[in-house]
Write a protein that binds this DNA or RNA. Sequence first.
DNA 1: ATGAAAGCGCTAACAA
DNA 2: TTGTTAGCGCTTTCAT
Lengths: 357, 357
Amino acid sequence: MSVSLKDVAERAGVSIKTVSNVVNNYRHVTPAMRAKVQRAIDELGYRPNLTARHLRKGRTGILALAVPELGNPYFAELAGAVIDVAAEHEYTVLLDHTGGRREQEILVSQGFRARVIDGLILSPIELEREDLLGRDHDAPLVLLGEREYDLPYDHIAIDNVAAARSAIRHLLAVGRSRIAFLGARTDRVNEPSHLRLRGWRAELTEAGLPAPDSMIAPTGGWDHPDGAAAMARLLDSGVLPDAVFAYNDLIAVGAMRVLSERGLRVPEDVAVVGFDDITEGRYGAVTLTTISPDKQTIARLAVQSVVERLHGTPGPTDGQEATGGAGTPAGTPGATRARELRADFRLVERESTVGSG
Amino acid sequence: MSVSLKDVAERAGVSIKTVSNVVNNYRHVTPAMRAKVQRAIDELGYRPNLTARHLRKGRTGILALAVPELGNPYFAELAGAVIDVAAEHEYTVLLDHTGGRREQEILVSQGFRARVIDGLILSPIELEREDLLGRDHDAPLVLLGEREYDLPYDHIAIDNVAAARSAIRHLLAVGRSRIAFLGARTDRVNEPSHLRLRGWRAELTEAGLPAPDSMIAPTGGWDHPDGAAAMARLLDSGVLPDAVFAYNDLIAVGAMRVLSERGLRVPEDVAVVGFDDITEGRYGAVTLTTISPDKQTIARLAVQSVVERLHGTPGPTDGQEATGGAGTPAGTPGATRARELRADFRLVERESTVGSG
DNA sequence: ATGAAAGCGCTAACAA
DNA sequence: TTGTTAGCGCTTTCAT
């Protein structure tokens, strides 16, 4: 076993408390004493046992982040940002992925996968409101992403409806009118895609254009193959759009691949807009126009939200915007009301809509 | 605070030990007793305090994985695999990224960032042998990736020289002879790229072809922009290769982008081979031929290695291959010798070398 | 089969 | 300013 406070204390001929004081940089320690203790620490190679410290303090210094899929660059990049922000707050991040499967998301939300954590940041796909209703876990929870629950947990997202509308507006501005939506799920109401779909519909309707169901191509998942399959199915069904708005960049890239296989040029024949602004979209043969969510802010708001609840400092939100939510998070010290936190987004115009001219 | 063993014991009118027995599924507990205790547990909503358990048992059930960059899909996908394998062994994964910076890698190796961990899987970029020489940390360490150290730690990688050679052999087979290498670092000997570079050189030499330095394009990093910049520099220098072997897929995709901007066709004018087999390479306008390392096996071997040292079961390696290493890992129960573990790889032929015919 | 009590390494009252 | 001591919640001898 390794060196403990007691060993150091004996070696230095002082009490445990004094050593603890030195280790924790307490004010009232004479320089001489500090030096003596420090020497013993160095000689013995003492390193504090975090587990013991945590048991005592009731906290672990670990935050969990659960995303659907690490293979999706958007989530990987977001995870990287969360890790960095957490480090600034002296927290380490335990990462988990749920595959977007409801049971996994439930397990995570109840702390069965990632245990020993102080707080949890969860980006759900299939999770239902009721799954969170009876959540019995001390760790503060913050929700990320497109879905909206009326629950006492902070929720962080960009304005998906507005983002979708701005994408469609851009497509209209470059002269398109038959704009398909790729990547909807139509089986439930509160789907990840429903807000973006709503934006698509609203903007088209407002422009006096039809938004027929035939222009909505559902996908089973949200990866390249799903986009490719959906695009192929749409074309096979005899529908030829002059633009495509995809639920995310991976779907958009998959769709572009199919378009080029079919001899359709992007953007001349079909313009494409994605969502997420992953690096990949900047380096294809045709670069991808996309909605770029402010990942840094999302990460910062998420970590901040958890840390605030942990430390009981409701404090100023310092986010872009905050509107009242519902109720009060259970079992959290800083029991401020749940907040709806918004991060910014912007439309990045690239070749897939405006060409390389 | 939450419910403790003691609370449950009082509620059930039994001793703490009995409750502990029930919680831990010990054999010798009468069904009646078990039922009674279980009822108290349910009523109180008791959940064991993992931190306390860990303090007592001396282990935390947490493994750390540190990769250079989560934004690189290769590492993101690898991380996903590690998380899954670790879960099979009942470990959770704490993820960290080092940015490939030496100081960060040193910090991680000594457990300064991720503390409270039982073991560490590290994929270093700049770390030097000496940085690990005096490593003073109980947690077993396993090294991943291209670099080779003669140190008492298990190392897991594919055979990079062989992989590079097979890539070059493929390019030769499709009729190329002026094959550039993109993504070398020439400033040090033990660079991540040096084994692949060696394979490039060996295969060319064996084929009686020149392998001039002018065909080696260094990069500052390993992302799209680095590949694009290196390709542009190479072309600007007046060198026109008929093939490019890139250190990784991101560099390859960046290079392809520049090629297409310059009006060069892939593969007609320039064939391209990458390394990593990230999903992105399968969905570009031109799909990418690449070396596909067996990520599953890498993840499995890595987790296995750490877990074995932790549990003191040297056990059968069950990897593809194992050659003797150096010395004995310090401070690990199962002090078997350090092993050189190999995972498989395969060449995946796609359009960037064989066209879409 | 169950209970009593010690102690993992640390922090935080409280004393001195 | 430094020392003493009581736990944090759990597992684990050792009794019974």
